[in-house]
C-alpha cells in the first residue's frame, strides 16, 4: 500500500513478540535508543496462541522498571495489530516518533547523542 511514515524507525524481526526479553529492551536504551515499541499480533490471533500476551506482561514490567530508574516508562510501548493492518502500523510509527520527539533524546545521551535513532523491536508474527 506504500503508506508513508517517519524514517526514524529501525525494525528488528522476531519469530513472535513472546520472544522479547527485558534485557534486550534495556540494552536498546543503554545503546542509545530514544524509544522502543514492541509490535505483536492481535490478542487471540497469535499463531503461537499466547506469545503476545506474555510479551505484554514483560513490557509492562520493563515500563515500571524504566520509571524507577529514571528513563521513563512512556518511552516503551506495546501495540497489537495484524499483518493486514498496514495503515495501523504507519499510524503507530508516526505517533510514537512524535511522542518520543516530545520526550526528547534518551536521557543517557542528553549531551552526546549517538546516532539519534529510535529503534523499534517489531515482533514479526509469521
Amino acid at each position: 500500500m506504500r503508506l508513508q511514515y517517519a524514517t526514524n524507525i529501525r525494525i528488528v524481526e522476531m519469530t513472535c513478540s513472546g520472544n522479547i526479553d527485558h534485557r534486550v529492551i534495556l540494552n536498546a536504551f543503554e545503546e542509545g535508543a530514544d524509544g522502543v515499541f514492541v509490535a505483536g499480533c492481535m490478542e487471540g490471533d497469535c499463531h503461537f496462541l499466547k506469545g503476545n500476551i506474555r510479551a505484554r506482561k514483560r513490557v509492562n514490567a520493563v515500563k515500571k522498571l524504566l520509571d524507577e530508574i529514571g528513563i521513563g516508562g512512556d518511552r516503551l510501548e506495546m501495540y497489537n495489530l495484524s499483518s493486514a493492518q498496514g495503515g495501523r502500523f504507519a499510524e503507530i510509527a508516526n505517533d510514537i516518533t512524535a511522542k518520543i520527539k516530545d520526550l526528547g533524546p534518551n536521557p543517557l545521551f542528553k549531551n552526546s547523542s549517538c546516532c539519534g535513532c529510535s529503534c523499534s523491536k517489531e515482533g514479526g508474527d509469521q
Binding site: R10, N19, V24, A28, E31, A33, C119
Partner: peptide
Amino acid sequence: YNDRMYMSMVNGLC
C-alpha cells in the same frame, strides 16, 4: 533468533 543477536543488531546500529 536469540537475545545476543537482537542486542548485537542494536549495537551494530549505534
